[in-house]
Amino acid sequence: MEEKVKVRGLHKYFGDLEVLRGIDLDVYKGDVVCIIGPSGSGKSTFLRCLNMLEQPTHGEVTVDGYLLTKKHAQIDKIRQNIGMVFQQFNLFPHLSVLQNIMLSPVDCKLLTKTEAEDVARKLLARVGLAEKADEYPRQLSGGQQQRVAIARALAMNPDVMLFDEPTSALDPEMIGEVLAVMKDLAEDGMTMIIVTHEMKFARDVADRVIFMDGGVIVEDGSPMQIFDETKEDRTKKFLGMVM
């Protein structure tokens, strides 16, 4: 099986604070990996190290066979292949929905304007927002904005998608529509790494669940192994609190 993400001995310090304390991970093509864990355990930091939004202090990160942590890595080029979805959506408020999606493929010269518009409209239809193409992010609900953000990331035709708590900023009634889009993506074979507090989603959709605590991976297994059969006290305690 094709390895998409490989992490070896990853450490991250913020000043004196060691936030990631040696992480190893292998993710293969089509894997859907959910990362769960208590607040401050380093989940976001770990995810952000995978596309170099944070610079790892030690260790190696390889995505699609390309070593990101080497000196003079062509980081912009690699990132085109790694989509990221943020908790706060981070849509560009000065651009229409369509322009948000078209911006990067055109600016990075992956697509012409016409091609990009075509792709953008198809993706909007896929996330159920075809009729919102000409509106501005501000005019959309949170759930709609997050779906546009997913479409925007997909427009780069990435091999791997990273999600950092994509539903945590949403009103409860909008969580479902975003999870549905993600589930659709997972079924389509996208390789996904998702930091989430949605345990039901993790159980239903994930191939693997990773429990992080204190900057390390405490457990890594199938949803059943983590949610039903865990022998780790820390996992039990965490699951006891959130479920």
């Binding site: 939004l53 912009d76 990132r79 990221m84 943020f86 706060q88 990075c108």
Partner: peptide, 17 residues
């Protein structure tokens, strides 16, 4: 919002673009 720069960079755009 610093998230704007992060979003643009995560899409593969260079810092200046």
């Amino acid at each position: 919002d610093p998230g704007q720069m992060e979003a643009a960079r995560s899409l593969g755009m260079s810092k200046s673009r």
